Simulated scan of single mutants.
Amino acid sequence: MKRSHYFYFVIGLLVLQACKQQPQQQAPVALPYPVISIPTKTVIAHNIYPASVEGTNNSSVRAKVPGYITQVQVDEGQKVRKGQVLFKLETQSLSQDAEAAKANINAAQVEVDKLIPLVEKNIISSVQLETAKAKLAQAKSGYSSIAANIGYATIKSPIDGYVGSIPFREGALVSPSDPQPLTTVSTTEDVYVFFALNEKDYLNFLKTTKGTTRDEKVKNFPEVELELATGTIYDQKGKIETVTGQINKTTGTVTFRAKFPNPNGLLANGSSGAIRIPKTYENTLVVPESATYEQQGIVYAYKVQGDTLAISIPIGVLDRVDGLVVLDSGLKKGDHIVGSGVGKLRNNTPIVPQMVEFDSIANGLKTVFK
């Protein structure tokens, strides 16, 4: 054997021996994972929409005659009764006009009284008496108009309710043409809550509500909840009373009005919040959020196959409610899936299943979410 060939032969033997000494790649070690059986449950989801609160009756208080405010007799937020005095305007010039109007009435009455016996004696024509009577009536009308304006200078509440903001104070000149009212009195024993649905949500809402006509569906609308600005849920439920039934061309939405009782006065005119409309899924398949993961917009779960192998399965999601995923497709009742720790798994990974109760996983999630 030539020397060069012998050299390569020796090198090949060394490489072969080194390969034999390399450790064989070990199969992945099966680790224990909690496994649950998929149940059916009835769960309630909520569709949430921004909302605004208004009193059931909001009455703007305006001046009927021009004048300077001399007294503001209420404060913002004060409860008032119908007819209660809110503002008083300066009436000095009106009082002077009223005195002059009274004098005109007296003068016209004297003229009528003087002419009556003359007409009875046929000394003068009755036309003169009728003319004098007309002047008397005109004088009385003028006085009544001035007296009414004096009455208008005392501005009273048109309804029972609560006083809103008061932008005008003593000394301010106000008139009927002012764009801003003196205040607004609101009735808030009950309140209206307004919210809007886009066209798609509106049609789906009608479709899933019992009834053949829109009026029947409105009557069958479920009670709704109000989420306050603090994030808490108002302790009274409301009822949807009206729907415009017309789509706003600018916003593409349909306006709803719900009515809520307000016994403690917690809800004020102008408040904001969010309406929560319940959506019930009866006897539906659910899995815990911890049993799912997402890749490229597709949601997956690990189904246990043959008791030892975790297989990645795409699932259809209808909704997510309090840490639960409402299923649309991909799994069926009784299937076994990995309940948590799915982030450490890969498709076709061997595991050691440890059967646990569904609620032990689901309730644990609710505690975390709270």
Rank of each mutant, 00 (worst) to 15 (best):
1 M>I: 00
5 H>M: 15
8 Y>W: 14
10 V>F: 12
10 V>Y: 10
10 V>T: 08
10 V>R: 12
18 A>F: 13
18 A>C: 11
20 K>V: 14
25 Q>I: 14
26 Q>P: 01
29 V>K: 12
29 V>E: 08
31 L>P: 03
31 L>Q: 12
31 L>M: 07
33 Y>G: 00
34 P>V: 05
44 I>F: 10
46 H>N: 14
48 I>Q: 13
51 A>R: 05
53 V>I: 15
55 G>R: 06
62 R>K: 14
62 R>I: 11
63 A>P: 05
65 V>E: 06
66 P>H: 03
67 G>D: 10
68 Y>S: 14
71 Q>V: 04
71 Q>I: 02
75 D>C: 00
80 V>Q: 01
80 V>N: 07
83 G>L: 08
85 V>D: 03
86 L>A: 05
88 K>G: 01
91 T>P: 03
97 D>F: 02
97 D>A: 15
102 K>M: 06
107 A>W: 02
107 A>V: 03
109 Q>W: 00
111 E>N: 07
112 V>P: 01
113 D>C: 00
115 L>K: 15
117 P>F: 08
120 E>V: 11
124 I>N: 05
125 S>R: 03
129 L>W: 00
131 T>V: 10
132 A>H: 01
133 K>A: 06
137 A>F: 03
137 A>C: 06
141 S>L: 14
142 G>R: 06
144 S>W: 02
151 G>L: 01
155 I>T: 04
156 K>V: 11
159 I>F: 08
161 G>W: 04
167 P>D: 05
169 R>N: 15
171 G>F: 10
172 A>F: 05
174 V>W: 02
176 P>E: 04
176 P>D: 05
180 Q>V: 13
183 T>F: 11
186 S>K: 08
187 T>L: 08
188 T>H: 02
192 Y>L: 12
201 D>P: 10
202 Y>W: 05
203 L>V: 15
204 N>R: 13
211 G>F: 11
216 E>G: 04
218 V>N: 07
220 N>F: 07
221 F>M: 15
223 E>H: 08
224 V>I: 15
225 E>K: 15
226 L>A: 03
233 I>F: 02
233 I>M: 00
236 Q>C: 01
240 I>E: 07
242 T>I: 03
245 G>N: 02
245 G>Y: 03
247 I>N: 05
249 K>V: 04
250 T>E: 15
252 G>H: 07
255 T>F: 04
258 A>G: 10
269 N>M: 02
275 I>N: 00
276 R>C: 06
278 P>S: 01
283 N>H: 08
287 V>F: 08
289 E>W: 04
300 Y>I: 15
305 Q>L: 13
306 G>C: 13
308 T>I: 09
320 R>V: 12
325 V>C: 11
328 D>I: 03
330 G>D: 09
332 K>M: 09
333 K>Q: 15
335 D>S: 08
336 H>C: 09
337 I>D: 08
338 V>E: 09
338 V>C: 01
338 V>W: 04
344 K>M: 12
347 N>S: 10
347 N>K: 04
350 P>H: 01
352 V>C: 01
355 M>N: 11
355 M>S: 11
